[in-house]
């Protein structure tokens, strides 16, 4: 009797996040000649964080384009190019520099499709590192998800693993709307398994990174790893947490949030960025509006402290979400309300 042949496990490779991003861009550029990369230091310098390393060599200076330090100018230029048939990927050396391009992103990229009743669309990706790295002080440490998610017309993706970075960047490049694609300087060197066979991850779908029963930690980007570490420690203390990685902030995967709260009845949102009018506030409002009866306790938020990033290493750590802050919030939310 012939034994059934086990399905071969998909072949994977251990990639750094920067390599996964590069693979995604390079594949899309081979597939579609209208895709190109532009930004500060992306070509001859090989990328400030080496995401685009080697791409100039493969694609040449017409498709991997170094720009002057003129974010408003080159962002607007890329939006115009997108309106007229190209598919630009614009790298911001950090999302902090996107503030200089805010007028072009909001008044043009986000609005042109609606303003022209669908005559022009803007298939463009703005991407780069987002959130705090280390010791970069006040003007290089902000997280921008809530800022850009505020505006209809934009999509906002924020990734925390090499596999998600690859699959979502490919979807972002193929998307016909402007996508704000947020990475993390702290994760560029982080390695993870990525299937060798090409795949896409749809924009707008959250991913359960860890299963659990007592409380849901909602997070994205590098705070996934803070939450996973906290959940691991809490498990040993008898509290079972699931970690829901949103991956996309806008459009928000409401169903995944509602399903999670129906299961655990308790929720903590862990995000970088300021508390006031942050993504966590939006999630808490939407989940409460839709699932009030399912909640056993109020949703809590762990965010950056409501102040700008200090350089002093002790204070710097205190501003950001941490394993201890997350654990304390989970314990608090589990001690309150029904069934506590």
């Amino acid at each position: 009797m012939a034994l059934p042949i086990a399905a071969a496990a998909p072949r994977t490779s251990l990639l750094q996040t920067r390599e996964a991003l590069r693979r995604a861009m390079s594949e899309e550029m081979r597939r579609d000649p209208t895709v190109f990369l532009m930004g500060e230091e992306v070509a001859y310098y090989d990328g400030a964080y080496k995401v685009s390393q080697g791409m100039l060599h493969e694609f040449g200076p017409e498709r991997v384009i170094d720009t002057p330090i003129a974010e408003n100018g080159f962002s607007g230029l890329a939006i115009g190019a997108a309106m007229a048939g190209l598919r630009p990927i614009v790298e911001f050396m950090t999302w902090n520099f996107s503030l200089v391009a805010f007028d072009q992103i909001i008044n043009n990229a986000a609005k042109i499709y609606q303003m022209t009743a669908g005559a022009y669309h803007v298939p463009i990706v703005f991407r780069g590192p987002n959130g705090a790295a280390e010791a970069l002080g006040s003007q290089h440490s902000m997280a921008f998800e809530s800022i850009y998610a505020h505006f209809p017309g934009l999509k906002v993706v924020s990734v925390g693993t090499p596999k998600d970075a690859y699959g979502l960047l490919k979807s972002a490049i193929r998307d016909n709307d402007p996508v704000m694609f947020m990475e993390s300087e702290m994760l560029y060197g982080m390695k993870g398994e990525v299937p060798d066979e090409e795949f896409l991850i749809p924009i707008g779908k959250a991913d359960l990174k860890r299963d659990g029963t007592d409380c849901t930690l909602v997070t994205w980007n590098k705070q996934i790893h803070t939450c996973l570490a906290a959940a691991e420690q809490l498990e040993k203390e008898g509290i079972s947490c699931q970690v829901l990685d949103l991956r996309t902030i806008r459009p928000l995967d409401e169903q995944a949030l509602f399903d999670a709260v129906c299961k655990t009845h308790r929720m903590v949102v862990v995000q970088e960025g300021y508390t006031f009018a942050g993504v966590g506030a939006e999630i808490a409002a939407r989940v409460t509006e839709a699932c009030f009866d399912q909640l056993d306790a109020p949703i809590l938020r762990i965010t950056n402290k409501d102040l700008n990033q200090p350089y002093n290493p002790t204070l710097e750590k205190m501003v950001l979400p941490s394993v201890d802050r997350v654990k304390d919030a989970v314990k608090l939310v589990c001690s309150r309300g029904k069934g506590a």
Binding site: T34, F36, E62, N72, G73, F74, S75, G76, L77, A78, I79, G80, A81, A82, M83, A84, G85, L86, D103, Q104, N107, N108
Partner: peptide
């Protein structure tokens, strides 16, 4: 937005040249 069209125009031109 005053001045907002200028970078767009340069991008439209880039697309024409590239294509």
């Amino acid at each position: 937005i005053v001045g907002g069209g200028l970078p767009i125009a340069v991008g439209l031109a880039l697309a024409d040249k590239t294509l």
